[in-house]
Design a protein around this nucleic acid. Structure first.
Length: 546
RNA sequence: GCCCUCGUAGCUCAGCGGAUAGAGCAUCGGCCUCCGGAGCCGUGAGCGCAGGUUCGAGUCCUGCCGGGGGCGCCA
């Protein structure tokens, strides 16, 4: 049991004891005891606000309750606890001896990459993360990669925290845009200009030169979409983004699932006909207006396909939870999608839509205009070519999905050495360097059981362990809040602690006591484990040398 | 007009309802006979405005102001 859990346990028991003694109705389960690491060290190593939060319930004053708690806990202090104090309006602060950090270090080394920081918060929940799903009508751009990094990292985080994860790309391989793509391709093959509203990018011309199929718009469009999709797949692979499923919209439509879905809605009396089209009475489920499902020309709308698709995910394939990652430019479709899901009898809480705020690009002082049809969007490929895959990933994961970001290409190019990825990877490389140096000097890391970790009491060493000790909670929070950025923040903090340690605490220098060298080598190993876990969740490599 | 979303330092961004809001860049200044100086240490400056909820609000609620996005029988 971790020190944190032991404290929560002790607090819960002390509360029970006080309640019995003083005749209070005061009861708090161990898991309800909120323990936090105070921002200021002089507030102790751990702190709980339980007296503040439950004062009303107990019918008493927070400071009095905190005082009683501190007295009981001081009389029989939990393991590693030196002092228990009341502070401020009613916090109970714990000051611990360094032993709790040595115990934590031992725990992470025992767990290793495989088991440390793998909290089971999903309980085997079957969750699908759908992300990117960019139309296969052109190369994917920086925004797709940005939100794609989020989706991919989120999937990694959920997989580590007890969820059964499927990552999916919904391929919009049908409808007008595919015809438009086909028209554009055929026009280029004839050396004509693309039609009004067509795709004029260079890649269309290149594909046209390869196309040997029939002069038929849909066939040409599908052929081009297939090739573009291959390209997208390899672009994403270059930044470590992978999918389990590439789900075809055309297959949904051809399977009859769209008609089936419309039929289900009709059974509930939520479908009507008007102006020759078939409509979904979305207003009945809270949408701001009704929506067309089947156009008067007989084609299904995007929404109809999307509803059939979500029914497939939530009902047919039976995911407990579906997380859709959309760009903010698609947020307009959320209300009708949610309305439709509700109308299909699915608990809307099982569908989470994460909206990625827009990424705008500047190049020095110049704004970069993005427009896919015009073919001048900045592609993910070009960004990766500029700054590399690791920098691309970590930069897209240093701000939260909710934060509209401005990304300066010039700055990323010129100041690439100041990029957080180098700072973090420098730590990784230094760890590799320690290993190489140790091998060179013939220093071998001893069995952990034979090493005295209590020799680690330098402030830098303790700070580093503190940082490592946070990882399980950071991973859990990142999962619960769907926030990979938490991992990025933590990894950078860890790197800072490591660089400080490395600077002030020689590991292999001649004057260092061999026993201390051993303890430090294990601390370095723990850092390597932490970095590997953290960077792994971000999809960033942890190189042993730069 | 309606809906969504965001406003934190000069710039780019962190910040689990907690106590004195943090990084990086940019500024200025220190530190290499020593495991990688792509590093370490120091330096100034900030929560758009107004209410509310709370023991406690950058964080939750309402309104306003400002930016972005969306309001198709496009996808």
């Amino acid at each position: 049991m971790s020190t944190r859990d032991e404290l929560a346990d002790a607090v819960s028991r002390a509360i029970g004891e006080i309640a019995r003694r003083d005749g209070l109705t005061w009861e708090v389960a161990p898991e309800a005891v909120h323990l936090e690491r105070p921002a200021r060290r002089d507030h102790g190593d751990w702190s709980t606000n339980v007296a503040l939060v439950t004062a009303k319930q107990a019918g008493s004053d927070p400071r009095a309750l905190a005082g009683a708690l501190a007295a009981v806990l001081s009389a029989d202090p939990p393991r590693h606890v030196d002092t228990v104090e009341v502070a401020g309006p009613g916090f109970v602060n714990f000051r611990l001896d360094d032993g709790w950090l040595h115990a934590a270090l031992l725990e992470m080394l025992a767990g290793g990459e495989e088991h440390y920081a793998r909290p089971d918060i999903g309980g085997g929940e079957k969750v699908q993360v759908e992300f990117i799903s960019a139309n296969p009508t052109g190369p994917i751009h920086v925004g797709n990669g940005w939100w794609g990094s989020y989706g991919d990292s989120l999937a990694r985080i959920l997989a580590r925290t007890g969820h059964r994860v499927v990552r999916e790309y919904y391929v919009n391989d049908t409808g007008g845009q595919i015809r438009t793509l086909g028209e554009s391709l055929l026009a280029r093959r004839r050396d004509d200009d693309v039609p009004e509203g067509g795709y004029s990018g260079e890649y269309v011309t290149e594909l046209a030169a390869e196309y040997e199929g029939p002069d038929e718009v849909t066939a040409a469009g599908r052929w081009a979409a297939d090739h573009i999709l291959d390209h997208i797949r390899s672009s994403l692979a270059s930044v470590g983004i992978y999918f389990d499923e590439w789900y075809s919209q055309a297959s949904i439509e051809e399977s009859g699932a769209v008609d089936e879905t419309i039929g289900l809605l009709a059974q509930k009396g939520l479908v009507f006909e008007e102006d020759g089209a078939i409509w979904f009475r979305a207003t009945a489920e809270g949408d701001s207006r009704d929506r067309v499902l089947r156009k008067s020309n007989g084609d299904a709308t995007y929404l109809a396909g999307d509803l059939a698709y979500h029914r497939d995910k939530l009902v047919v394939r039976g995911f407990d939870r579906v997380i859709d990652v959309f760009g903010a430019d698609h947020h307009g479709q959320v209300a009708s999608l949610v309305a439709g899901v509700k109308a299909l009898g699915v608990d809307p809480a099982r569908l989470e839509v994460k909206l990625g705020q827009m990424v705008s690009l500047v190049d020095g002082d110049e704004a970069v205009k993005m427009g896919k049809r015009a073919g001048n969007a900045v592609t993910l490929d070009s960004l990766v070519a500029d700054i590399g895959p690791d920098a691309t990933r970590i930069l897209s994961l240093t701000s939260s999905l909710d934060q509209a970001t401005t990304f300066d290409l010039a700055s990323a190019r010129v100041q690439s050495a100041d990029n957080p990825v180098y700072y973090v990877q420098m730590a990784s490389a230094r760890i590799g360097g320690v290993g190489r140096k140790a091998a060179e000097k013939g220093v071998i890391r001893a069995e952990l059981a034979a090493v005295d970790l209590a020799l680690l009491h330098h402030q830098r060493e303790l700070e580093l362990i503190r940082s490592l000790e946070e990882l399980p909670e950071v991973v859990a929070e990142a999962a619960v809040d769907r926030a990979p950025v938490r991992i990025t923040t933590w990894v950078r903090r860890l790197a800072t602690c490591f660089h400080g340690f490395y600077h002030d605490c020689p590991i292999l220098a001649g004057e260092v006591d061999p026993a201390l060298t051993q303890a430090r080598l294990w601390l370095v190993e723990a850092t390597r484990i932490g970095l590997d876990i953290g960077l792994g969740l971000l999809g960033v490599s942890a190189p042993e040398e730069l």
